[in-house]
Design a protein around this nucleic acid. Structure first.
Lengths: 233, 233
DNA sequence: CGCGGCTTTGATGTTCATCAAGTAAAGTGG
DNA sequence: CCACTTTACTTGATGAACATCAAAGCCGCG
């Protein structure tokens, strides 16, 4: 009864994530999750997770965009991945580590839902279907990450830029015309090249009429050519 | 009863892997797993898994060493990872994909145990403790892989060679004197450089008295210097 | 207004891949 | 067992790709 009431008063019931990961929860489990969850908004630029902090919550992105980054011992920053709502790298490590081995920063206004990690762990123990969907999701995220790296590592600089622009257009914004959520420097940190060369190749693509650039705004006018560069690089 | 008998007659009971992943299974589960498992030996060079084949089994390495590799569309081979018994990359993707997205080849004589994937999936559903340990193991493997890539990508060629030699010595053979299980070309495929440059840097390190080389045999004589090169690269 | 961060372009030098050529080692068929 | 072929290994020379350095314009913000 109590559970019933809690559930109906809970916005989680209409959350997109419910179908992805939580559809196998019982009403009581769902309600318990709901009651202790904590939702928070982060505006662009805010730090969501700091490298080294203890892992106490299972986080997921309701919406928004984040960068998962890490600083090496000489202070150089690297972006491991751009995290989208349903494809969140943090998922992979949160059940094994005690402390975060990376930071997470909002690239756009982002809503994050956090649940006590032990509550989720006990749900894994008690609900096999939930455990299965979590394992499947983890595998899918791994695959994405592994393929992303595999594809990127073999390419030259022009190929990388082409690849990343197509990735933004197709996988993140579903639109050939979009605003970059990151600076030129951050693109370099993500695909492993210097800021100067990111800019140089942007300019090259503009000169060759493959893209239009207006500050952060990118409009891909020749997708075919861009894809060819990405494939051949 | 029947289960009991099956269990005591099964060699799995003394398998190292039992403690890692399967210690939370009930006797009946363990016995069921045992009865349908299939163990096979592969000698050096044999193909264990072929890219594109359907995933029907959950595989783990009992002992030996494998390379996980993938061929890009122009026929160029890349090694994603070297798989050790308890740290097997395949673990990450086997529950999400329908077909293998990579090949696995034995680098040394290797024993592989294979269990029907659906049996394992149903164990995940029915045994929460098992699901938990699997999720933890998956997370640990992810972490290793992500860190491996993070470390490697920032380094120059000398740093990469130093890093990989230390990895072999410390994480695989626990000995500064070891036989390389791979060719010079394969090292290049693993850390992203040409065969010629792998050899060149080997020769350089030999000239600088950091390592001794005798064919496949490597003896690290100046670990500190090698670590410095790995760190600074 | 001025400062700092982001962006842009050009000049220069280093790192690395490619090409070439030769030796050693390992497998293959007679 | 030996000629033969193939594959792995090695070194040098060259050029291309990329990082670094330098300088200047732009923009937002205190």
């Amino acid at each position: 009864m109590r559970a019933e009431v809690a559930q109906s008063s809970c916005e989680c019931i209409s959350c997109d994530f419910r179908d992805i990961l939580f559809k196998s929860l019982t009403r009581d489990e769902f309600s318990a999750l709901c009651k202790q969850k904590y939702q928070r908004s982060y505006s662009k630029g805010m730090l969501i997770v700091e490298e080294g902090m203890p892992i106490e919550h299972f986080l997921y992105l309701k919406n928004g965009l984040v960068k998962i980054h890490k600083i090496n011992k000489y202070g150089k920053s690297t972006i491991l991945n751009i995290g989208k709502p349903l494809d969140f790298l943090s998922l992979l490590t949160v059940f094994s580590d005690r402390n975060y081995s990376f930071s997470v920063t909002a690239l756009e206004d982002t809503e994050v839902c956090s649940m006590n990690i032990n509550v989720v762990k006990s749900m894994i123990q008690n609900n096999g279907k939930f455990a299965c969907s979590l394992i499947e999701k983890m595998g899918a995220v791994s695959n994405t990450y592994i393929n992303y790296n595999f594809n990127l590592n073999l390419k030259n600089l022009r190929g990388r830029i082409a690849f990343i622009l197509l990735d933004f257009a197709e996988n993140i914004y579903q639109n050939p015309d979009f605003d970059l959520p990151v600076s030129r420097r951050e693109i370099g940190e993500l695909i492993g090249m210097t800021t100067e060369n990111v800019i140089r190749i942007f300019s090259e693509f503009r000169r060759d009429k493959i893209i239009k650039i207006n500050g952060k705004n990118i409009d891909i006018v020749n997708v075919d050519k861009l894809r060819k560069i990405s494939d051949l690089g």
